[in-house]
Amino acid sequence: MKKILIVDDQVEIRDLVEITLRVSDYNIFKASNGEEAIEIAEKENPDLIIMDIMMPGKLDGMEAARILKNSDKTKESIIIFLTAKGHKIDIKEGKDVGAAGYFVKPFSPLELINKVEESLRT
């Protein structure tokens, strides 16, 4: 069973993403900030991480993704950003970090699940 980690500081969004993913059998983990995300990722080694950018705490989503992609242990995890930051420059930064996808809020759950399934297949 594929493991997916959902990182968002808002519980509604975490729930929304989880419900969105419920069409298939995934082992789902949740984190509410960057530090927590890294902790879980290192422990569980998820296949895919859906990451918010603007979160409280020392590490925002972009920084957390950068750390994960630079770590031998977690660099294989696919990262998809899901954020309110919709500027071109933010999207470029996300791609540069090594994300497989970038969704701007408000997003379409259908599109998200398509992207997740497609990413996990390859």
């Binding site: 808002q10 509604e12 969004i13 929304l16 419900i19 969105t20 603007m54 309110a84 930051k85 809020k105 408000p106 997003f107 379409s108 759950p109 259908l110």
Partner: peptide
């Protein structure tokens, strides 16, 4: 405010689509 407006809108859009 753009960020603030986006957050509730995300839930509204996402949940209604589901």
């Amino acid at each position: 405010s753009a960020h603030e407006l986006r957050t509730p809108l995300t839930s509204i859009k996402g949940f209604s689509e589901i």
